[in-house]
Every structure is written in C-alpha cells, then in structure tokens.
C-alpha cells in the first residue's frame, strides 16, 4: 500500500460502482428484517440499496470461518470456493475481529479454508455513527471509526452526524454521500476513479467528527491485567448462575472460533462449537472437566481476557457487545470482567 487515500463520493457513484461490481462479484450487505434483526444477505441489484442499517446480529466472521462447512466429501478434500465477494457495510468491530482471527488461522497454523475466504473477499466497512448501550469497542483497543481488518471504510456525511441515538439498532441513516478511506490496493482500484479529494476544511471536520463518535461510546471498562489469582473464586459461580448454556454468545462473537469436526455419511463437517455448551468438553468416558456453568463461563472469560492475551498480546474481544445484546438472560461480559474481584 502506498499512501493513504480518502475521497468523497456520492451515493449515486457508489451505487453505480456496486452495480458494475455485481457482474463479477457476489455482493453482501446487511439488511434489516422487521422485528427479527439485521442479517447479511447477497444482493442481486442495487435498487433500494440502504447501506447504513445499524449492525448485523451475526458478524462477518461467518463468511470466513463458516458456521458449518464440508471439508471432506467422499474421501476427498473439498475444492476451495473461488467466487469473488465484496462485503459492504461491515462495522469496524467486525473487521477487527478478523484481525484477531488472522492471528489464529493465518499465522503459525495456516487454515486453507479461512485464508482462501479472506483472499477472495473484499471488505468495505461502514463507520459507526451511534453506538448502543452494549458497545464498548474503544475499551478493547478498537474504535467505531477505524478500518483495521478491512479494505476500505465509508463514513456517512458529517452534517448528518447525530448525537448519541441511544440505540442504533433500530436507527436508519440514509446517506447521500460518503467519505471513503481506502486502505488496500484492491480497494484503491475501485475507489480511485470515483468522487473527489477532501479539502482541508473537510479533513479537519472529519477528524473532529471521529473524536465525537468515539466519545459517544458510553460503556467503558478497563479489563484487569491478570486474573491469575481469582481462577478459583466463587465469583465465577455467582456470575454464571443465570447462564443458559446456549451458544448465542460464542456463535455471534466476531472472535470466538472453536469448532467441532463431525463425520456424517462419508463427509466431514466443520461446524461452530462453543464453550458454553455442557457437552463441549464431554469426554467419551463420560467425564467432563467443565461440569458446571461456573467452569464453562469462566473458560469463556479467561480465553478472551487472559489466555489469549498471554499468547498473542491482546484481548480476544473487540467490544462489539453482541454477546450482551443477544444474551437471552442479558449476561454482560464487560461488566463481569470489569467487576472481577482481582484483589481477593
């Protein structure tokens, strides 16, 4: 990547570009289904295209580490998918989630499926304009306006910037133009011919606006440096009492990546699995090293805020708030980590 590139583009220009790209790419954007949530969907045309729809229930993780994928069929490795894809409208927390997943699947160990999915997908993100009460990305080293893990990032117009909306899940922002921050060369090919450069004034306002958006985050935590001393604490029993042992938090997490291998009729399937499930660590003998919710919930917290940090230098959490927002009993991991009795 040479130098930074920022452009101001109109909605019409963007739509026309998407239309053109549709010829050779699969294009995926988040779409709102009334009273059901926001889900990524393939689009077939650019009519009624709305790009800003709050954030999706399922993060873009599912396009890279798929919820379930056949990896062996009839005794042979499955061929890697070749279709080129463009995901438009992913949020910064989702991009950062991929950065963390890269440390696992594209580092010492190379996961061909993940890497192939990464290579064939271009991500054009959308900066957040209003966090909800579960968002805490800035506390986890992220930001609602950064492009990490993505190829480009769109900003809705500054004049449309709204004060904290309370809950952006139900909010729509219709933008007629965007600022686009271009990160990779792949994205440069798309955006270089479009729009115009930013003038000094806009640049200045843009920086101010970014700060405003970061400051709009209400939820702030500082995770403890180490939780070594409280592994045996009753705290974990207390905070996990209402846990239902379902897979919502792990499946919707942009960074949770545990999977299970299942053989079904001469095929081998790799599908999501999660540490909250009671049978996650169940052994053939019937023994289960994590027999109760206490051990299972503690595992999730420690993997994110202790083990991963020790191995990779940062927390395995991007502060997207999905596990809080969608937990059927509203367990709040941010609160649990922030309140951990580290000075026991």
């Amino acid at each position: 990547m040479s130098e930074d590139m920022q452009r101001i583009i109109t909605k019409e220009e963007l739509n026309a570009k998407i239309k053109e790209l549709l010829k050779e790419n699969e294009i995926i954007i988040p779409k709102q289904l009334l009273n059901k949530g926001i889900f990524y969907q393939k689009i077939l045309d650019t009519d009624n295209l709305v790009l800003a729809e709050g954030f999706a229930t399922e993060p873009i993780k599912k396009f890279f580490l798929e919820p379930s994928s056949w990896i062996i069929k009839e005794g042979k490795d499955l061929e890697q998918a070749q279709t080129k894809r463009i995901i438009i409208g992913a949020r910064p927390c989702e991009g950062r989630g991929l950065e963390l997943l890269d440390k696992i699947f594209d580092a010492e160990y190379k996961d061909n499926f993940y890497i192939n999915n990464r290579q064939r997908t271009l991500i054009i993100g959308l900066a957040c304009d209003g966090p909800d009460r579960c968002c805490f990305c800035a506390s986890m080293g992220g930001s609602p306006v950064e492009a990490r893990g993505m190829d480009a990032l769109l900003y809705t117009p500054l004049e449309n910037f709204m004060e904290h909306k309370g809950n952006s899940l139900t909010g729509y922002t219709f933008a007629d133009k965007y600022i686009v921050e271009v990160i990779t060369d792949k994205a440069k090919d798309i955006f270089a011919p479009l729009g115009k450069e930013l003038d000094a004034e806009t640049k200045k306002n843009w920086q101010k606006d970014k700060e405003k958006r970061i400051n709009a985050l209400q939820k702030k935590i500082s995770p403890p440096e180490s939780m070594d001393d409280i592994f045996q604490s009753d705290y974990w029993k207390e905070v996990s009492q209402s846990c239902l042992s379902c897979g919502v938090c792990t499946y919707l997490c942009p960074t949770c990546h545990c999977f299970d291998l299942v053989d079904e009729a001469r095929k081998r399937l790799r599908c999501y699995d999660g540490c909250a499930f009671a049978d996650f660590t169940l052994e053939t003998s019937g023994a289960n090293p994590r027999p109760t919710k206490k051990e299972r919930y503690r595992q999730r917290v420690y993997h994110k805020f202790d083990y991963f940090k020790k191995n990779f230098g940062e927390n395995l959490c991007v502060g997207c708030g999905r596990c809080i927002r969608h937990c059927p009993v509203k367990i709040d991991i941010a609160e649990i980590v922030a309140n951990a009795p580290i000075r026991l």
């Binding site: 399922e58 919820p67 239902l244 042992s245 379902c246 897979g247 919502v248 499946y251 599908c271 059927p328």
Partner: peptide, 10 residues
Amino acid sequence: CIRCYACRQV
C-alpha cells in the same frame, strides 16, 4: 438458524 440452541436452553 445458527443452531445455537438458545430455544432449547431457554
């Protein structure tokens, strides 16, 4: 459906 089994667990 993502097979999180929240429907079952709840």
